[in-house]
Amino acid sequence: MTFTTQLFQSENLVLEAYDPEKDAASEAAFSYDPNYAAVIDGEGVPHPLTVFEVKKKREEELKKGGEKDNFFLFALRRKSDGLFLGILTFPHVFWFNRYAFFKMTIGEAETRLAYFTEALQMGLRYGLEELGLYSMYTSTGEYEPEVKQGLEAAGFHEAVRQRENVYRDGKLWDRVFMEILQDEWKTRNAQVQS
């Protein structure tokens, strides 16, 4: 890890400041997918959102986050054409304890397949190297198997399984918290480099 590490650029992606004026419309379109809508609306019932709702929510978050310095939200864009792919967010960093929940979500299935791993690495770098977190975790479950598998492939392990705490496709699923520690990330990177 050095200061020369580029946190906001990777081979195909860039992290930019979220812009409610232009990004809310894309997120509103993505919100027809309940797994994306749940990211915008937290614990609420996922449902398609209007551009107005997304814009209002994101503006409020950015304002509040700017005041408290514990909220981070990035727009994830494709480098080649600037296409908005989704978001990377740390909604609440617990500075006392140096851990955070984070969510990285890409709206379209096709771009998710192409860029999930690369975007996740950017999230890990930002959380564990720049924010200096001891650990970070996210939630997923068997209702989105490609996301869970992608997290496992990046070094996350299952930490918590809240039984029957998500409703998708007419049935109850477990909500799974996947966690990675900074030490695990460092060890993993050292192994890759050696």
Binding site: N97, S135, Q162
Partner: peptide, 19 residues
Amino acid sequence: EGRLNGNLLKAGVRYDEVF
């Protein structure tokens, strides 16, 4: 239902958050 490793830091010691 599981635990998040070392989420509570007090006096330099980390404790798990148990769910």
